[in-house]
Simulated scan of single mutants.
Amino acid sequence: MNIGNLIRVHSAALRALLVLTVITGLAYPVLVWAVAQLPGLKDKADGSLVTVNGKVVGSSLIGQLFTDAKGNALPQYFQSRPSNAGTGYDPMASGAGNLGPESIVDTPADPAELKAGKAASEAGFKPSLLTQVCTRSYGVADTEGLDHNSGARPFCTSDGVGAVLSVIGPRDATGNVTHPTKVVSVNQPCETTKAPFAATYEGMRVECAKYGEDYTGGQIVAIRGSAPSDPQVPADAVTASGSGLDPDISTDYADLQVSRIAKVRHISADQVRALVKDNTSGRALGFMGEPRVNVLRLNLALDQKYPSSS
């Protein structure tokens, strides 16, 4: 290729680069921004921000916690669902806990570090998804002033951990233990429980788990227990969303909180339910998903109409 052709080729490439830069780097972003400023679109493009007296208090698309500095639920407000996004509803750390249905065995804490004053998480404790659900269920029941049985869920112990056994012994061709020689409640360490949730299993005494012992060789068996299949505490009260930023809760979870809100704000339950209804959205397109309640808007409506001194 001679020098003339080389100049023409590079000149054409440079012109294409400049034209595409103007189109994709300038014109297109300006066009998208201009469209976003149209009435009906501007609010969504700006992040669906919610303001009170000119001050931004949140977004209707991103949930937030209604807790005190210690993480305790503020009783005068409806509570959001749990969040695994950072320390809770952190838009910069959106994500799930990445634990699935098979996450039923906890990683125990080192008892020596617990005695030294460390928190369970600092001592190596990692709760399974099942234990997280069990613990949260009893926590919600306590927050709402319900009796202990109201927080009960299938496959949970009465002390709020997964009701899971490691059954050790010879197995048949399908992998099931035929004659148990040892049975251990793996999520109930001896340091934290007086007695396992079950006294016996198939004629064998159930033992509490001892730190440092390996029970993975046993058959892991989850015990359903006598809890109702339709727990009083709804699923979204004890599980986080995939993004960790869900701003809504189910109507069931909202209804569970009505009595507490009414009592703290000294109003009737019917007055609270009316506000819940006003802040409830129906199914998308009339048939997708379930009705949902926006927690931020509902709490703002409560503060505006029935201010609390709490």
Rank of each mutant, 00 (worst) to 15 (best):
Y253W: 13
A254F: 04
A254E: 13
L256V: 01
L256C: 06
Q257C: 07
Q257P: 02
V258E: 12
V258G: 15
V258D: 15
V258R: 11
S259V: 04
S259P: 13
R260I: 02
R260L: 02
R260E: 00
R260P: 01
R260D: 00
I261T: 01
I261K: 02
A262F: 08
A262W: 13
K263R: 12
V264E: 00
V264L: 00
R265F: 03
R265W: 05
H266L: 03
H266R: 10
H266E: 14
H266W: 07
I267P: 03
I267S: 02
S268W: 12
A269T: 14
A269K: 10
A269C: 12
D270R: 08
D270A: 09
D270N: 07
Q271H: 13
R273F: 06
L275T: 05
L275K: 15
V276Q: 07
V276G: 07
K277G: 08
D278V: 06
T280H: 13
T280D: 08
T280A: 04
S281G: 13
S281W: 05
S281K: 09
G282N: 12
R283S: 11
A284E: 04
L285M: 14
L285A: 15
L285C: 06
M288T: 11
G289C: 06
E290A: 07
P291Q: 10
R292M: 11
R292P: 11
N294S: 06
N294W: 09
V295P: 15
V295R: 12
L296I: 14
R297C: 11
L298K: 03
L298F: 13
L298Q: 01
N299T: 01
L300I: 09
L300K: 03
L300Q: 09
A301H: 10
A301V: 06
L302P: 04
